[in-house]
Computed example of a mutant assay.
Amino acid sequence: MIMVNTESIVGVEIEKSLGVVYGNTVQAKHIGKDIVGGFRNLVGGKMTEYEEMFRESRDIAEKEMIEKAKELGADAIVNVRYTSSSIMQGSSEVMVYGTAVKIK
């Protein structure tokens, strides 16, 4: 599945727009990693525990969006955008959305 954050794909003609598709997930780290992340927040440093959580969340959301696009018969997703929000301390929502398209 081709995914781009532009309105078109260089060298490819879009035949038909199939609609907006999205994927989202809410993730939380277990208490141990949350405590380590909280400690790093106090003393400084790279917060790998939360980076890992966001990576996992993004992957899950992307897979969900791609599945929805495949169900529509899409070959690609254009104009892909990501958004995230904090639900509560230690958990976050990641949403990805774009337009599913059929290409020639």
Results as ranks from 00 to 15, higher is better:
Gln89Leu: 15
Val94Leu: 02
Ile9Tyr: 02
Val26Gln: 12
Gln89Val: 15
Ile2Met: 06
Ala61Glu: 02
Leu42Trp: 10
Ser8Thr: 14
Ile77Thr: 02
Val26Lys: 05
Asn41Gln: 08
Glu51Asn: 10
Gly32Ala: 13
Lys102Ser: 02
Ile87Arg: 12
Lys29Gln: 12
Val20Glu: 15
Thr48Asp: 13
Asn24Arg: 02
Glu15Tyr: 06
Ala76Pro: 02
Arg40Pro: 04
Val26Leu: 09
Gly19Thr: 04
Glu51Cys: 11
Leu42Pro: 06
Ser17Cys: 13
Ile66Gly: 01
Val101Lys: 00
Asn5Lys: 06
Glu67Gly: 04
Val101Gly: 01
Tyr82Arg: 15
Ile9Ala: 03
Asp59Leu: 01
Ala28Tyr: 12
Asn41Phe: 06
Asp59Ile: 03
Glu56Tyr: 14
Gly23Thr: 00
Asp75His: 08
Ser92Glu: 15
Val78Ile: 15
Val36Leu: 10
Glu64Val: 13
Ile35Asp: 05
Ile9Lys: 03
Asp75Tyr: 00
Ile77Phe: 01
Val80Leu: 14
Gly11Leu: 10
Met65Arg: 00
Lys46Thr: 14
Val78Met: 04
Arg81Val: 07
Ala28Leu: 04
Leu72Lys: 15
Ile35Leu: 15
Ala76Met: 07
Gly38Asp: 06
Ile31Thr: 11
Ala74Pro: 01
Met88Lys: 14
Ile31Ser: 08
Thr99Arg: 14
Ile35Gly: 09
Ala74Gln: 01
Ala61Asp: 00
Glu67Asp: 08
Leu72His: 10
Gly19Ser: 08
Glu56Gln: 09
Phe54Ser: 06
Asp75Gln: 03
Gln27Thr: 14
Val94Arg: 03
Asn24Phe: 07
Ala100Asp: 03
Ala69Leu: 04
Thr99Ser: 07
Glu56Ala: 10
Val4Ser: 02
Glu67Gln: 12
Lys46Asp: 14
Tyr50Ala: 01
Ser8Tyr: 12
Ile14Val: 14
Met65Trp: 00
Ile35Pro: 06
Lys29Ser: 08
Ile60Ala: 03
Lys33Asn: 15
Lys29Pro: 09
Thr25Tyr: 05
Ser86Arg: 05
Val20Ser: 14
Tyr50Gly: 01
Val80Asp: 05
Tyr50Glu: 02
Gln27Lys: 13
Glu52Ile: 09
Leu42Ser: 08
Glu62Ser: 01
Ala28Phe: 11
Leu72Gly: 07
Glu51Trp: 03
Tyr97Asn: 10
Glu7Leu: 04
Val43Tyr: 09
Met65Asp: 00
Lys70Gly: 08
Thr6Ser: 11
Gln27Gly: 13
Leu18Val: 10
Tyr22Lys: 15
Ser84Cys: 05
Ile60Ser: 05
Phe39Leu: 13
Gly32Trp: 12
Val43Arg: 12
Ile14Phe: 10
Lys33Met: 13
Val80Pro: 02
Tyr22Leu: 06
Lys102Ile: 07
Val4Asn: 01
Lys16Leu: 11
Tyr97Val: 11
Arg58Lys: 04
Glu64Tyr: 05
Glu62Lys: 02
Glu49Arg: 03
Glu67Thr: 06
Ile31Tyr: 10
Val21Arg: 00
Asp59Gln: 00
Ile35Gln: 08
Asn24His: 07
Glu62Trp: 01
Glu49Ala: 07
Val78Tyr: 07
Val78Trp: 06
Ile31Met: 11
Arg81His: 13
Ser92Gly: 15
Glu49His: 14
Leu72Ala: 11
Met53Thr: 04
Lys29Asp: 09
